[in-house]
Design a protein around this nucleic acid. Structure first.
Lengths: 332, 332
DNA sequence: TTGAAAGCGCTAACAA
DNA sequence: TTGTTAGCGCTTTCAA
C-alpha cells in the first residue's frame, strides 16, 4: 500500500475490465501484438474513452529498461553543446528513445552523471573539462557510456570527437601558403581537451617554419583584447582563435585599434556558428559538425545497448570555410 | 518472471542480506530516515562495496511520481529555446528534479508531447507555432502543464512569456524621439506568437505618427536582403528586426548596398544574443531574459505539482539595450 | 527502531 | 488467441 493512490488513476486493469478482456490482452494490443480484431478495437476504444495513459515506471520496471538515454553537457545554453544534443535527440527520438539531459555546469559533475544515469539505459558524456582520471573512475559505474568531444585513452569507453587537430593544420597551412609566418593562437579554456588539441596543432606548425605565439583568451572580451594586443606586439600577422566568439571579440578589438582585417592581420575562428558569415569581414572558420557528432554518438551508444562491442576513439572531420577575414599578409 | 534478469543486478534485497538487515531498513537509510547508527553505517558500506544503484523505475512506481519534468521545444539547437531550457534545468536540478527534453521539430509535436509527458510528473511546453486550438486540445491530457513564451487565453494552463509588446513600444518610442518616422518591421516566422505580438506593437506606433512597413524576413538571409530592399524603397529610416539574426543579416545587406548604419538607417534586433554587442556597429537589441523565463516556468510547474492552483498569464520584462546601430535619421 | 508483507502498474511465461 | 499468474525492485503501513 505504497502510494496516495490518485483515485482517478486509469490502469491497464480498468481498461481490461471495461473492454471485457484480461490485462494481458490490453498489454498486447498496446504493444501491437496480434489479438482478435474485435478485442483490439474494443480495447482501443476504451483506452480513448477512459483516457488511459500507460505508466512508464511500471513498464520500465517490468521490462528492465527505460528506452531513455541520458546526456550530460557542461552548459545547456552553449550552442556548441546543444548542437550535439540536437544530433543525439534527432536519432534517439527516431528510434523511440527519450532524452534525459543534465547540465553539469549547475551541480557537481559527478552527481549529475549519477543522477542522470539512474533513470536511463545509457549515457553520453560531454565533458571537456573533467580530468581524465575522474572520467576513468566514473565510467564503469555509468556503463554503457559514450564520451563525446575528447579523447581519453585511459578511459574504457568509446569516444568520438571532432578532429580539430587536422583542421588547425589545414587552416595554418593555408595561411602559410598565403605568406604568413608569425601566427598567434588565441587560446580557449585551458582545461578543455579541444583547446589542448588545437594548441598542440599550433605548435606543430613550427616544423614548417611558423613562429607561434599562444595567448590565453578564454575568459571574456577583456582578455581577448589583451591577447590581441600581445599578439600584435609579437608581430603576428594571423590570429587563430579557439572559437568564433573569441574571433569576434578579436575583430572588435582590432577595429578599435584601427588594424585592418585582412589587410594588416588575418583572423580565423572555429565552430562556424551562423553569425560567422555575417561578421565584418565575414569570418573564416572551421565548420564543426556538432549535430553529426551527436548523431554518431547515439549510434555508438545504441550499439552498446544492443550488446555489441564498441571501443576506441573515432574522429569526425571538420571543414575549413575560407572567408574574407583571411588574406595575404601586408594586404598583398 | 518478466525480465532477462541481468544476473548481476544488485538489488536492495541483496544489500539488506549482506548488511544483515531488512530491505525496509536499507530503504530507510537511503531515504535518510532515522535508523540505528550502526545499521546505517553497515548499510552504507555494503552499498559502496556492492556498487548498489537504486532502480528508479521501481522507486517511481512505488512512489507514484518520477521527480522528472519534461520540456518540449521546437528546436534544441536554437539559443532562444536553450536559454529557457537552461533556466528550467537550473531550478529543477536544484530541487532534485531531472529534465526530460523533447525536440518537437523532429517528430510530430503532439507525439513528442505525449511521449515526454509519459515519463514525468509535469511538462513545460514551448510551442510558438502550434495553433491555439491544438494546444487547448492537448493540454488536459498533459496536465500539469505550463506554457512558455506565448499567451493562449483559451488554453487552460498557466502561461508565461516575455513582454515583447512593451519592449517594441519602448524601442520605437526611442527611435521616434530621435526623429524617425518611417519604420520598417522585418518580421519573423508568421505563425509565431512572438512575431504576432511584435507586429501588433509595430502597428500601434501609427497612433503616434509613425509610418510602418512590415516585410517578411523569417526564412533566411536572402529573404532578409529582399526585405531590406523593400524597406529602403519605402523610405524607412529605421529597421526593427524580429530578432538578432535577422538584424545581422540586415546589417550585412545594408553594407553591401553601401548604406551607412546608423547615419542613413538605424537597425535594431531582438534577444540580445552575445554577439549583438560584437556586431559592426554594435547592435541595439532587446535583452530577453530566457533563462529567467525558464526559471519562472519551473516555479509555476512546481507549484502545480505541489497541488497549488496556478492559472493565467504572466509576463516578464525585457530591456532595451541601446547601442551604436541606432542614431538620429540623416546622421544628425 | 525494525521486519513482514502488501502492493505500485505493467509484462511475459505458461497453460489452456 | 487468451487468461492466469508470478514477478520487476522499491516503499510504506502495520504490528512487534
Amino acid at each position: 500500500m505504497a502510494r496516495p493512490k490518485g483515485t482517478g488513476t486509469v490502469t491497464i486493469r480498468a481498461v481490461a475490465t471495461a473492454a471485457g478482456v484480461s490485462p494481458a490482452t490490453v498489454s498486447r494490443v498496446l504493444a501491437g501484438k496480434t489479438v482478435r480484431p474485435g478485442s483490439a478495437e474494443r480495447v482501443r476504444a476504451v483506452v480513448e474513452e477512459l483516457g488511459y495513459r500507460p505508466n512508464s515506471s511500471a513498464r520500465d520496471l517490468a521490462q528492465g529498461r527505460t528506452r531513455t538515454i541520458g546526456v550530460s553537457v557542461p552548459d545547456l545554453d552553449n550552442p556548441y553543446f546543444t548542437g550535439i544534443l540536437k544530433g543525439i535527440g534527432r536519432e534517439a527520438q527516431a528510434s523511440g528513445f527519450q532524452l534525459l539531459v543534465g547540465d553539469s555546469g549547475i551541480s557537481s559533475e559527478d552527481e549529475v552523471w549519477r543522477a542522470v544515469r539512474q533513470r536511463c539505459d545509457g549515457i553520453v558524456l560531454c565533458s571537456p573539462y573533467a580530468s581524465e582520471a575522474a572520467l576513468a573512475k566514473a565510467v564503469t559505474a555509468l556503463s554503457p557510456v559514450v564520451i563525446v568531444n575528447r579523447c581519453a585513452p585511459s578511459v574504457p569507453a568509446p569516444q568520438i570527437a571532432v578532429d580539430s587537430h587536422s583542421a588547425i593544420l589545414e587552416l595554418t597551412g593555408r595561411l602559410m601558403r598565403l605568406g604568413h609566418r608569425r601566427l598567434a593562437y588565441l587560446a580557449g579554456p585551458e582545461r578543455s581537451w579541444s583547446d589542448r588539441e588545437r594548441r598542440r596543432a599550433m605548435e606543430s606548425t613550427r616544423h614548417f617554419g611558423a613562429e607561434v605565439t599562444t595567448v590565453a583568451a578564454g575568459t571574456g572580451v577583456e582578455e581577448v583584447a589583451r591577447a590581441v594586443d600581445t599578439a600584435l606586439e609579437a608581430g603576428a600577422t594571423a590570429l587563430i582563435a579557439f572559437n568564433d566568439l573569441i574571433a569576434f571579440a578579436a575583430l572588435s578589438r582590432l577595429r578599435e585599434r584601427g588594424v585592418r582585417v585582412p589587410e594588416d592581420v588575418s583572423v580565423t575562428g572555429f565552430d562556424d556558428i551562423p553569425y560567422a558569415r555575417l561578421a565584418v569581414p565575414p569570418l573564416t572558420s572551421v565548420h564543426s559538425p556538432q549535430v553529426e557528432l551527436g548523431a554518431r554518438a547515439w549510434h555508438i551508444l545504441r550499439a552498446l545497448l544492443d550488446g555489441e562491442q564498441a571501443e576506441g576513439f573515432q574522429t569526425i572531420d571538420a571543414e575549413v570555410r575560407l572567408r574574407d577575414s583571411v588574406g595575404a599578409p601586408g594586404g598583398l
